[in-house]
Design a protein around this nucleic acid. Structure first.
Lengths: 343, 343
DNA sequence: CTGTTAGCGCTTTCAT
DNA sequence: ATGAAAGCGCTAACAG
């Protein structure tokens, strides 16, 4: 049931059928009606492979993300999928598990499938051979979450966001603020967030300290140990985490160490995954507009594709973040209870 | 940089290049080496559209899921994506937001893209016009999570699982067990789970009661109201929820109503999303092997595709579920404290 | 406004 | 073991 069947049934040539679909205005109304009717009767759907082969446009986008197990990227994917679908594009998603080698592989897999463009989040934009190759191949792409002057990016200013958060915590009385992160070297975003943390701590004359948890397996133990061992005077009063999933683990570890959140310890995440607001205590976090990052990436990419250009680094987008001061975060209780309004 | 460039560079015909890739054994080792070298030098990747057009096989699977915002389906997608990638297949995912109309639309979108097969989770398998159409069109497909005798499914026995859970709760001393669900009519799985609940309650001579929360917007209010209004004698001691996300909301609502989980109220979810174990209290749940459901669906579908058949309803898979008795669930404390070992 | 035709890149007979 | 050639379904000149 190809274009030919439709043509025969409508009593026209295949070219006319094609035109009736692709530039209806160039076909006589009567003819167009006949074609439409025939197509409907046969349940005809144009074959995308043939069209792609001929036009060199697939109306398909490659999507490369670290994982779907982290709700942040699931939300991003939802945004991407929605925007793409609305524009009549399909997506082919691939995951890399934060591994550079898999990023390479993903691109190779996508290359044969003639995607029109790519949306990706890489571990480290600065030293990604994958990205360099993409750029060299002049394939249109947009990075989501990554921030790098040489690449077109849709992201949030994580460094500034983190600095703002830490400043705010200090304003609320916190002094011993510990940053908890995965392996810094594994993610350029974690590095940026850490820079913001360090700068704000220094500005507040407080000591920056970083707890890196490279592997999630023993993370709870490490955390519990770190939180439990110190006496009250040296224990952090707030934990800033480089992502929400980590913050969740911190909250649990705190509970296991006998600490109450937020009475004894404030815990703040980064990402703003939707689930955070449903918890008890609800998770304070620097919220990124995850779905919108996905949607905007698609919008920008498609816009460029339509005009035959490729996204340029100079046009990168920084979307606003938002500090969610939810239940897991609160002002530091003064050690000596004071009367209401006493200060 | 097509097959022709490779052929020229290797000094052979395009047919030989094609063979070198698709049936290496049918080509002389020396020739094969030359072709491989030429292809590598040129960075040649066979064009999938052309191949698809010619062979009528795209090595692409359509994936239709309700949403990526529910971690359960994100996990499923991870399983599907992994298994598909390992087998050299790409996936095109589409979401339906539990709406039948969007299911239709998804299939239409996929039909032009010549996917070899489909994996889908529909709202209600029994009355899905979409499914009927698929079946009629003889397109190979597998349902994930749905259970229906007329369709090939990969699922767990939700009815039995729920009955087991409720029996277990009763064994732990619970009598007033309330089931909380989204709109029953919106999901065949919720219906099955509810049947299991009702049967087990009846078997235990207890009164089944259902709280339907059609819209999430006012769910917290409704829940808080239901939990807060009743005095201690009439308040449920356990909540069984038709999914984990709902259970999360219940836990939060309970807290807002002044109830402690699990001391005052046990809350049990359904799905076993990975995140549940990271919470405090960790979320008790009937765990489904979500990623495996994805992987097995792919494996089955691909197996059929290879042998040129389509999955048959009779070969449907029921995977084992697992009751996670985590922190949000505990035996009913007896109202009148008893001495240890007094019974 | 419509038809004829070439060709997108590949696989697959059919020859040799 | 290799090559020549047809054709998958479609679009885009080009003609008329």
């Amino acid at each position: 049931m190809s274009i030919l069947s439709v043509a025969r049934r409508a009593g026209v040539s295949i070219a006319t059928v094609s035109r009736a679909f692709n530039s209806p205005e160039s076909v006589a109304p009567a003819t167009r009606a006949a074609v439409t009717a025939a197509a409907a009767a046969l349940g005809y759907e144009p074959n995308l492979s043939a069209r792609t082969l001929r036009t060199q446009r697939s109306r398909t986008l490659g999507v490369v993300l670290p994982t779907f197990r982290n709700p942040v990227f699931a939300e991003t994917l939802a945004g991407i999928a929605g925007a793409a679908a609305d524009a009549g594009y399909a997506i082919i998603p691939l995951t890399t598990d934060y591994q550079e080698a898999l990023e390479q592989q993903a691109l190779r897999r996508l290359s044969g499938r003639s995607v029109d463009g790519l949306i990706l989040t890489v571990a480290d934009a600065a030293r990604s051979a994958t990205l360099a190759a993409l750029k060299r191949a002049r394939r249109p792409y947009v990075l989501a979450y990554n921030r790098h002057a040489q690449h077109p990016c849709v992201s949030v200013d994580g460094e500034r966001a983190m600095a703002e958060l830490v400043a705010r915590l200090q304003q609320l009385g916190h002094r011993r603020i510990l940053m908890v992160s995965g392996h810094l070297s594994a993610s350029d975003r974690a590095q940026q967030r850490h820079r913001g943390y360090a700068a704000a701590m220094q500005a507040g004359d407080n000591t920056a300290e970083l707890l890196e948890l490279p592997f999630i397996d023993n993370a709870p133990e490490l955390l519990t140990e770190r939180l439990g061992r110190a006496d009250r005077q040296h224990r952090p009063t707030a934990l800033v985490c480089s992502n929400d999933l980590l913050a969740l683990r911190c909250m649990r570890a705190a509970a296991l160490a006998g600490l109450r959140v937020p009475e004894d310890l404030s815990v703040i995440g980064f990402d703003g995954m939707a689930l955070g607001t449903e918890l008890r205590p609800s998770l304070a976090s620097i919220a990124q507009p995850n779905e919108e990052i996905g949607r905007r990436s698609v919008a920008w990419l498609l816009d460029c594709l339509e005009r035959g250009s490729a996204p340029r680094a100079a046009d990168s987008l920084t979307l606003p973040h938002q500090l969610r001061e939810l239940e897991s975060m609160r002002p530091l209780a003064s050690p000596h209870p004071t009367l209401p309004r006493s200060s």
